[in-house]
Design a protein around this nucleic acid. Structure first.
Lengths: 213, 213
DNA sequence: TTTTGTCGACCGACTATCTGTCGGTTATTA
DNA sequence: TAATAACCGACAGATAGTCGGTCGACAAAA
């Protein structure tokens, strides 16, 4: 049976299925055949809308990150809240805001998904870091933080957080070890931002405990 | 023509070719057929020595990192040199010590090589970080550094350096931007290690300029 | 109202390529 | 000369991407 839909609608359908499958089975272990079958279309149709499997992955990631960045940007620009609170909320939005995306994030770090991980990392770095850096600079102007290199601090922090605190690396840590890793992270971020010991404790802890679900 | 060799020798031959090809064309773009052809053996022979293509990659990486770690370990244990010098030399050994490995490092960060990158990252993290951490702890005992979380500082620093200063990410930076990135990195490491501003300048600069070849 | 033409969406058989397997063969060594 | 380690290459199975052709909606012409 032949069903015709508008290109945009079909594309979304394909991305929906792809996102689910990539998240469940990983990118390498998901064949284009799996996608075809679940969407209910023929090979030719898939390749009519996307020119390669990798382009589908790009599509999935773009959709995810666009959503996350829009959310984070909105929070960051809300001048009514204090900087520290905006910072916390913006960071939180990455962990919880996307209920579908989360499944994906869970799977990102399996070896087979290295490509996916790297692509997300790249997108986040160019999309989110500027937003966070902006906030840090505002904090500097307000005297909350102090550093000569806000952009570099953010890059270092985000990059580390994004790969060090993933589900695989943290899975084989005891609760105590994880606690220490988090404590060390907070300690280090405080040093990087030139704030007093303990000043970020409360704000950053919120992030980790929320993300543990 | 049939040539028989001892398993170890054949394995090395295969790894030599694989290392070269993975470095040149990337892991995904190198087929097992390419390897067979260049080594001059049949399919069956390859799979007699390695049970999968991924195991070949693991073999290549293991060989590389073993060499690097042995070198770094030797330097770190040389009690005659001051800590700071040992630290510098140990870090230097990763960049220059392996003339073959370097080609690979050049290619690691292309998207197709995400898997390779991740595997190296993982091995370095479990193999090299302890060596460096040991040095940092010695520095702390000597009063050169100060931090409550030496292992976490090292993990953060190594992980960041390893992905932020790769050939792809730095390729599209202007010399001035790269300079700033390096300066920011040094500034941040000094803060993390609790040393005075400028105290690591000389030592760390040596690393970056040596690695630029 | 009916016919015809256009074009975007869709189909599925086919190709090319690749990884891993297996039964059988050759060289070496005890 | 018998056992075994190393080797061979045809083959199976899977997968990504291609291509010529089809279908259906919609609009213009009859």
């Amino acid at each position: 049976m032949r069903v015709v839909k508008e290109a945009e609608e079909r594309k979304e359908e394909i991305l929906d299925v792809a996102e689910k499958l990539f998240g469940t089975k990983g990118f390498d272990n998901t064949s284009t055949g799996d996608i075809l079958e679940e969407v209910g279309i023929a090979r030719g149709t898939l390749y009519y809308h996307f020119k390669s499997k990798e382009e589908i992955l790009d599509g999935v990631i773009d959709r995810m990150t666009e959503h996350m960045m829009a959310e984070a940007g909105k929070i960051a620009r809300n001048q009514e809240l204090p900087v520290l609170e905006r910072l916390t909320k913006a960071l939180l939005s990455f962990n919880v805001e996307t209920p579908i995306g989360n499944e994906v994030v869970e799977q990102i770090h399996r070896p087979q998904n290295a490509l996916m991980h790297q692509k997300i990392q790249e997108t986040l770095l160019t999309g989110i870091d500027p937003i966070i850096t902006e906030l840090v600079e505002e904090g500097i102007r307000q005297g909350i933080f102090y550093t000569d290199y806000p952009a570099e601090v953010v890059e270092m922090t985000m990059l580390y957080a994004n790969t060090a605190f993933d589900s695989i690396d943290t899975a084989d840590l005891s609760p105590a070890e994880l606690e220490k890793k988090i404590a060390g992270f907070i300690y280090n971020v405080e040093r990087l931002l030139g704030t007093e010991k303990g000043s970020l404790q409360a704000a950053l802890m919120k992030i980790f405990h929320r993300s543990e679900t």
